[in-house]
């Protein structure tokens, strides 16, 4: 499986964020989109998820399910966690698992992996920022999807949780999945290549 971006160009409010951005991510590889704030890392991820049409160029997923859009084959974890404060951790997990069509037995695995099993019956509103981030990331394990799009995934995670995330990502990679992450911090992902995003970056490259 291959995720390909060809000569992508993005504009935001009339301003060009990046132009002629090309890359290929193979199965088992991670791509780290790096660049300063406002360079267009989030825009790139949203473009890959299909929320946003590129001004120019195209995004393709080769070797995936031809009948499904990229959106349906990816997990998108944005800045917000998509966790409802009035539902318990387990209820949040159960909803996304049911909605995204995940197998029921993965729910326990996900809760345990991200260290949320003890908090399962606590409404998510009571969680700390880091715990809430973990509850959001837990979605990655609830349903099997080949492409993971992660926007600043380590925000408010402590060192242990960052290791857990890296472990989950590496396991996903070795299972043949692929990951695109936007970050301005170093991430301990295996087999990662870096992609500078932004106009100045394109000029240098």
């Amino acid at each position: 499986m291959k995720l390909i971006g060809e000569k992508l160009c993005a504009k935001r409010g009339g301003r060009v964020l990046f132009a002629k951005l090309s890359f290929t991510v193979d199965s088992g590889r991670a791509l780290l989109a790096i660049g300063p704030n406002g360079a267009g890392k989030t825009t790139l991820l949203r473009m890959l998820a299909g929320f946003l049409r590129p001004e120019a160029g195209q995004v393709r997923l080769e070797g995936g399910d031809a009948d499904a859009s990229i959106a349906e084959q990816c997990h998108y974890v944005g800045h917000a966690n998509a966790v409802k404060p009035s539902l318990t951790v387990a209820e949040n997990a159960a909803f996304w698992s049911g909605f995204l069509g995940g197998a029921a037995d993965r729910l326990e695995v996900a809760l345990n992996t991200f260290g949320l099993a003890a908090l399962r019956d606590i409404p998510a509103g009571y969680l700390s920022a880091g715990q809430r981030r973990r509850a959001g990331l837990m979605r990655l394990l609830l349903a099997e999807r080949p492409v993971w799009l992660l926007d600043e995934p380590t925000t408010s995670l402590d060192e242990t949780a960052q290791k857990v995330l890296a472990g989950a990502v590496n396991q996903h990679l070795s299972g043949g999945g692929l990951v695109v992450a936007a970050t301005h911090l170093p991430l301990a992902f295996d087999r990662a290549q870096e992609l500078p995003v932004g106009l100045s970056a394109a000029a240098v490259a």
């Binding site: 009339g14 301003r15 060009v16 106009l199």
Partner: peptide, 10 residues
């Protein structure tokens, strides 16, 4: 907008 971007060297 172009002026702003030129000023920023972009």
């Amino acid at each position: 907008l172009t002026e702003v971007q030129v000023a920023a060297g972009l």
